[in-house]
Design a protein around this nucleic acid. Sequence first.
DNA 1: GTTACTTAATCCAAAATCGAATGAAATAAT
DNA 2: ATTATTTCATTCGATTTTGGATTAAGTAAC
Lengths: 400, 400
Amino acid sequence: MKGNGRAMTLTTDTLSGLDSSPGGILNLVRSGASSSRAEIARIAGLAPSTVTTRVEQLVAHGFLREAGPGSSRGGRRPTQLEVNPETGAVVGVDLGAHHASFGLFDMAGELLAEQHLDMEIADGPDRILGWIAEVAARMVDEHAAPGQALRGVGLGLPGPVDYPGRRLVSPSRMPGWNGLDAGAGLGDLLGVPVVADNDANLMAVGEHASTNDGVAHLVFVKAGSSIGCGVIAWGSLFHGARGMAGDISHVAVPNAPAVVCSCGRTGCLDAVAGGAAIVASLRAAGVEAADVQQVIRLAADGHPLATQMLREAGTRTGVVLATIVNFFNPQRLVLGGALSGAEAFVAGVRSAVYTECLPMSTDFLEIAVSATKARGGVIGAARLVLDHVFDPATVNAALR
Amino acid sequence: MKGNGRAMTLTTDTLSGLDSSPGGILNLVRSGASSSRAEIARIAGLAPSTVTTRVEQLVAHGFLREAGPGSSRGGRRPTQLEVNPETGAVVGVDLGAHHASFGLFDMAGELLAEQHLDMEIADGPDRILGWIAEVAARMVDEHAAPGQALRGVGLGLPGPVDYPGRRLVSPSRMPGWNGLDAGAGLGDLLGVPVVADNDANLMAVGEHASTNDGVAHLVFVKAGSSIGCGVIAWGSLFHGARGMAGDISHVAVPNAPAVVCSCGRTGCLDAVAGGAAIVASLRAAGVEAADVQQVIRLAADGHPLATQMLREAGTRTGVVLATIVNFFNPQRLVLGGALSGAEAFVAGVRSAVYTECLPMSTDFLEIAVSATKARGGVIGAARLVLDHVFDPATVNAALR
DNA sequence: GTTACTTAATCCAAAATCGAATGAAATAAT
DNA sequence: ATTATTTCATTCGATTTTGGATTAAGTAAC
């Protein structure tokens, strides 16, 4: 899709996740870093004999399985190893204000089924969490193999989630959810671990996992009706001190109109560049526009005002991102969410970033549109809960 | 340990790969995380008997030594362990435009001697690096114990240093240094490893090492005649993809005068809030001010214009930092450099950050003035080169 | 002061991990 | 085809590492 022959920079900059325990070996295979016993031995720095023993254990307990011979590197062909997908399933859920996406994944992270349903987050946690539990259970019933029980759920929430407590912190547009540990609530209903996080964070994880190309530092911007952002540092989701990392919704945008924001201040990025703001502006100008998607269609059809406003929103977002690019120096900046489907928006971001940043910071920066489209959230959710289920300590304990 | 199959949240925040090799044990002691055999066993998850063996090795090779009994935790007193300081020395160097600070440290990181000398960085790398080598060698001769040979040098440079190449990238005010790997150059002269990095980065490391209180995510701002910034994430120096992380000098400041910057654009943070900019403005207003220190003295004596300008510089810096606080969500924001000695500047930063950020991001944020003062750079430089010299892989190899 | 409890460090048999040798299975050269 | 070379994975004796038992050295309560 995005196959440009760029020189790939192999940074040996990942914080040593060199865990040589059996659980660590499982995660080497999961990450795709090693797919044979010999490769595991090389990367983990273990003796080949030890790898044999440990892989035997992992296979015996159903975590791994052999997957036929791989290609030779000039000698005997390696026996490839892969995560055994059949020992369970996880569900990734991505909640919006009026909409929920569900994805059912096997233990190897492959998508088995997905579902997009309407929903009102304002109905409150009691009804919504119960409903999620029902949908998840039904998906497992209908699409998972008989032995594939639900092993966990990843839950994306359209509001700030703190860390490590994972409670919602003053989420606008989510009446009744403030202070709630939604993961724990859903976990109580389902009896399996639930990992909850902000939706933009999950999309960042999903993007990073999908394009598994060794990019260590990545910033993902979710520009939909509101604007969120998730940060990957050293290959892992970065939460900051209290889980608020990436929260750029309420950064003041220079030279922007003094639109009042939900936070009570004026000129916040969310209020001057979010999809909802664009729709409102267009309407105020007398243009019929029901939602963000329609604005994007208008622009695609060449509507001048819609195009201009999308570009302006992109520029405003880009101005904020320029500061972040200077500060964080990511290798890749990924644009996702509905607005990333509008060329004008993407062009606006690119223009502003390259105008406001020194070449030093942008020389090696890729600005890309998300490859995961609408699926990023559920992919990230599944990835996060799989990471939890396959946590080395847990796996080691399970091996007795 | 971890819970059972019930809903729960991930709590593994420190990505620090708990290295249980002998080299890893040495670094546990170095970091202050463990100071007795029993504590090492607890934290590294090793059997007490294994710790006994490995500590024995480390002591035999001179890396560690016993340091008498510690205080009881309700039972037998632990035998405390410490890094053997006598096996060598390192020098930390912090270069400015017209000034160089040197610190001689023992292997435990204790300061043995320091020196502050005038210098002109514009004399070029050939003369300056040779001079640094001489000064470093002389400090070892005069202040280190007979057996304490020089084992490495940390070098702070007043310009952008890329990563992992560690070359200077278009440094303003450093004619002749562009593209240079100054660490390698100095290393060739001295025959010991030299770790070079940007000066603000080193000050961040120094601050983090000095206040060794478990803060994982920290942003250090060096506000001197120019403005730089260093980032600590998960307890380690964060370079970003190309070493440019923290480079906020050329972020455009909203509503600032269109002062031309060295980068060719206008309104950069450096150009409207740096110490050099303040001095220039004061002079333009007819006030006698030779340098930043004098501006600070003027303000301390109640000079209204100097005070106002320092406060304004603080506000401008704070506006930029507000975006960074929102994005990065650090636990601590530390102000260093000459300007941090001015109350007006610090007040300006505080005011802007608290005005521009949502409570969510600042509730648990500390804004502090650097505790290391002028020594931060050399402390950080020493820390970085000691981390290199005591790299687990190196140490493990040396034990064979 | 005596007794009960807690923590620290070492000893030693049992379990694991390692490393060299070996067999297995491919490629490359003769 | 035959031989040499390379890589993958396992076997097996040697070496670490482990974990419980033991000794050492303290605190707390009575």
